[in-house]
Design a protein around this nucleic acid. Sequence first.
RNA 1: GGGGCAUUAGUUCAUCGGUUAGAAUACAUCCCUGUCACGGAUGAGAGACGGGUUCGAUUCCCGUAUGCCCCGCCA
Length: 628
Amino acid sequence: MSQPSAQTLRAHDNQSVGVYPAFFAQRTHFCGELANDAVLKHNLLEKTVTINGWVSANRDLGGITFVEVRDRSGIIQLVADPSKNPQAHKILSSLRDEAVITATGPISKRPSDTINPKLATGELEIYPSQVELLNKSKPLPFPLDEEGENVEEFTRLKYRYLDLRRQRMFNNLKLRHDIVMGIRTHLNQKGFLDVETPILIKTTPEGARDYLVPSRVHPGKAFALPQSPQLYKQLLMVAGFERYYQIARCFRDEDLRSDRQPEFTQLDLEMSFVSMEDVIALVEGLLKEVFAVAGVSIQAPFNRITWHEAMDKYGSDKPDLRFEHCFTDLTDVFTNTEFGVFRQVVDKGGVVKALHVPGAGEYSRKELDDLQVDARRYGAKGLAYIVYTEEGPKSPILKFMSEAEQRAIQEKTGAKVGDGVFFMADEFIKACSTLGRFRLQFADKHGWRDEAGNAKHSVLWVVDFPMFERTDEGVLAPNHHPFTSPHPDDVALLETTPEKARSLAYDVVYNGEEIGGGSIRIHQADLQAKIFKLLGFNDEAAREKFGFLLEAFQYGVPPHGGLALGLDRICALLANCESIREVIAFPKTNQTICPMTEAPGSVDEKQLRELHFQWNLPKPKPGAPDQK
RNA sequence: GGGGCAUUAGUUCAUCGGUUAGAAUACAUCCCUGUCACGGAUGAGAGACGGGUUCGAUUCCCGUAUGCCCCGCCA
């Protein structure tokens, strides 16, 4: 896992003994290798070293001049005294920030009163006998002295190659590298083969919008870029590869977020002759090792929670279980209530969920009003509440409730004076998911995540997902994807009430973020046909969309299943970054452009003609400046 | 597609209707021999775009563009 030392690099890369020697003095050491203890350990004191790097600071005191040199490993200070070495001083004092130099000289101890404890090399410095300017730099468009969070991200992305000079950014991408290496090593030991699958594939109308690539050779036809290697990895199982993985680039033409890019990376894997438990066990071992790369220790086996319980108690299919604060179900309390709003919901088979928020009794009128605004933004009519103050309970809905109901609310939730209880009454998924958003909102506001005794890291499996969901049009859609196997206990339900059937799908959730998901796949042609029928595909439509898969399924398909992990998200979480853009070298902005290359760009007529392609452009918006 | 916030020197921020638009840092010139966020002096450098309101707009309003965050969307 460790990187080669400078010794290794010198032996293989830096010893120019051939016909084309380097035209500059090549490094004997990385700056960071000249750390205080390492220099003592390797007996380097007063030995001549050569460093190559960028000038990160120049402090010319009028006579004596200090220059800090940075390479990817760290920083070391050069010193020149004009009375002792006027040539070196002349060059050093003329160096500007980010100039590329090579410097050679003895590595020496600093006078004891000039040690800089903030630098790993702070007890040492180099008195260069030779300094060569290899390249100078224009003044930078933004400072590199801090972490970069306070510079407009667009500017950072426009000059990403400079932004990546920050130690933090190097560390992020180094962590990503280490994680990928950890994955490859682990899966290799477990007998997985890395197989590349095509990037130019046939469009599948399911799921997200596809990126399309018009075909030159086949006028009027187009390739799609894969949203995932799903079908190919299943075909590799048909082929008998048994265990496949790929660090796969995936493409989705949807609107972006801080955790969504148009192209992103998944660790995709698939296994044959396995049960769900086999996949889970494998992934637990893998994630344990991956997290350890980042110094995060997690325990396997992970906790498991059913989808229903996750929704019922936490209002999310990716619950953050670093803290408890779960819902109380009050449906029973209101089965015969006089309170019309709740009664209607309960009569229709809905639920009444309550969330107890300690400290909410102190909320101001404005805070309570703001919650109503949030509720409407979340698609609810409002957020009913009772706050318990010194003067007694206060609530707009109190007058509709009986004494017994009020007592039951307080007993069941455990609310005391100074607390609040918030209610959501609706159809199960709607009520739970809306209140679930408030659970996270209250967690931010009251610091629930950091409460004493809470786990810092919560990794869990969410299992027993419903097989289908009803779309707005009332038709069944796959919750995971159409190849997901139903739960063996629920196969009979497919005939009667398919929306109640569970699947063998599973998600892995870390601190409230979905970092991966997978399933056991269907491997029986007749069951797959039945699922397609439920999804509303007739035989012809199924054949048109997935004919090659159905055909393959007639030639001996092993039971198989797998999973995909969101590599960008995992890296961002382990690097403590808010956005996956911080762990991607060259990401796109929210408008799906690259500020550096200005992609996407115009295409010249000749290229379009070759593709038999013609734009059909939307009208510009009124008030928009003329486009050239 | 919708909502919120933002857009002023290279960068990061001020300026709340009349200002020579201010500062820090970067940059340039000069001074400075142990700095490490070196210090000191001097200098150059700015209102996204298009409308409107007003005697007067960087400031208020509308639109457009762009950025960030969120909703929809993301099997």
